[in-house]
Amino acid sequence: MKTEVPAGAAYRPRRDRLWFARTRSYTVFVLRELTSVFVAWSVAFLLMLVSAVLSGGLPEFVALAGRPWMIAINVVALAATAFHSVTFLNLAPKATVVRLDGYRLPAWMIQGGNHSLWLVVSAVIAFFVLRGFR
């Protein structure tokens, strides 16, 4: 036994640079957060489309969107935005506590409502984009 233990010698662990790789759930969390990069990309892509439509440059945009690397980016963006939708809509009931008759509405009901709304909104958007009222 050492007798001369320095006062205040508590050991402070260094920052773990690879913390996000230590467990699967940390990695899933980081991937969930990184979907935001593709959310930003999707918005930029939409703005490019809007700009092309309004300036009459739609054929050029169609050619650009058809490039293999562009399709590859958008396939990843689709996966990321869909992952964002699933995780975000599933986590929503954590912040919004709905009380009916004094007791909490179960999370699956709120989640089910969210996902149903997602389907309806998607169908409405697809309808107007593809067909609309002629």
Partner: peptide, 10 residues
């Protein structure tokens, strides 16, 4: 973003 982006990107 959850409601409108996936279908637009798709």
């Amino acid at each position: 973003a959850a409601l409108v982006l996936p279908v637009l990107v798709l």
